[in-house]
Structures are given as structure tokens and as C-alpha cells.
Computed example of a mutant assay.
Amino acid sequence: MSKNILFIVGSLRQGSFNHQLAQAAEKVLAEKGATVTYLDYSQVPLFNQELEVPTLPAVQAVRDAVLAADAVWFFSPIYNFSIPGVLKNLTDWLSRALDLSETRGPSAIDSKVTTVSSVANAGHDHLFPEFQQLLTFIRTQPVGEFTGALVNPEAWATGELTVSEETIAKLSAQADAVLTAIN
């Protein structure tokens, strides 16, 4: 049976460099027999406990997508040497207990195999430790060596990211780690 990997791209911009990196990883996973779905979380509001009950449809939709996935792969830009706010907000929602009467109970992302890749010109050495700490704290299982890629200079003018063979090899190793962890 094919494994379903949920891609969460940390930039809401259409055609973002991180979305283009995700597309390269999708091709790698397809060659390994896995399927990919992309999470649309654009309608998830800023986290607010007053909005938790009843569960908002947008929140339920992202929880359902995460619950249905075998693993979650984040593709994150770097904003001020850190995790983008929209991505941190999403993890705040996903890490909340599904049953709020048991606040330490399982969440939608609890125990999921996770990994992270990023395209940026600088800051991977800041971003990846933050993700490692966050993903461990919210009780996921981070696997593989996180992949950092640089933006090719002409991409700023053309909008087209060139993914190097070296980066493809790193994505392939990362995909192997994910698939091994969920088998």
C-alpha cells in the first residue's frame, strides 16, 4: 500500500521557492512509490482558546488531513532566522489535544513522523534547531537530516528555483528516512 506524505509549505505565496522545493521532493517520493498531498491551511485563524469549542471547520479540516497522513513533511522559509508565524500558528492548532477534557491527551500531530526542508539564503543553522525542538515538544517523531537549500541568484528575477543534484540527493535520503520510519 502506498504511503501518504502530507506536505505543509510554510509560505502561503503561490509558487514560493519552498513550494517548488516541495514539488522536487514530491517527484522523489513518487519514484519511491509514495503519494503526496498538500495541506491548505490558509483559512486557519490565529490561535485563540476562545475559538477552540466548537471546533472550527478550517481547524477540523487540517486535523483530519494530518490524522490521515502517514507522515508530515514541512517546507519552510526562514523569517527573521525563525519559523514563519503562519507555520508556528498551524502547529499550535495541530498540537492541541483532540479531547480538551484531557489536555495532555493525543493531538492530531501526536506521534507523527515529521521532517523539515527549507529554501533560504541564510539561517538554516537557526531554523532547524528550532524545528527540532518544536517538533519534539509537540510529540512528533522528527527523522532524517533536515535539508537546507539555497536560492539560486536568478530565481529572484525569474521566480524559478533551480534545485541542484546535491539537494535532490539530500531530499532522496530524507525521503528514505521518512519511509523507513513509517514502515
Rank of each mutant, 00 (worst) to 15 (best):
E154C: 00
F47D: 01
A58V: 13
A97V: 04
I5W: 02
G123A: 05
V86T: 13
L90H: 01
Y79P: 11
L46D: 12
D92S: 06
I5D: 01
F128A: 05
A65C: 12
G159S: 03
S111W: 09
W93P: 04
A22M: 08
H124C: 05
Q141L: 11
K3A: 03
I8E: 04
G144Y: 03
V143Q: 10
A24D: 01
E52N: 08
N80R: 07
A34W: 08
R104V: 14
I109N: 03
N18E: 05
A175T: 05
Q132H: 07
L150K: 15
A177S: 13
K112E: 04
W73I: 12
Q20R: 10
E50F: 02
S164W: 01
S11C: 03
T147Q: 02
E130W: 00
V86G: 09
N48S: 11
E50N: 12
L100G: 13
D125E: 15
G15N: 03
E154Q: 15
T115A: 15
Q133I: 08
S172N: 14
F74M: 13
S101F: 05
G85S: 14
N80H: 09
K27R: 15
S101Y: 08
S2Q: 07
R139A: 01
L135S: 03
S164Q: 00
I138S: 10
I138G: 04
S117F: 06
I8S: 05
A22I: 06
L67G: 03
V9N: 09
S172L: 06
W73P: 13
P57L: 06
I182T: 09
P106M: 11
G148H: 03
K32A: 12
D92T: 15
L100N: 09
P77N: 12
S82H: 10
Q49Y: 04
N89I: 12
D125K: 13
N80S: 11
Q60C: 02
S11Q: 07
F17Q: 06
V163D: 02
L179D: 01
L12E: 08
R96H: 02
A157Q: 14
Q133R: 15
L127R: 00
E154L: 14
D64S: 14
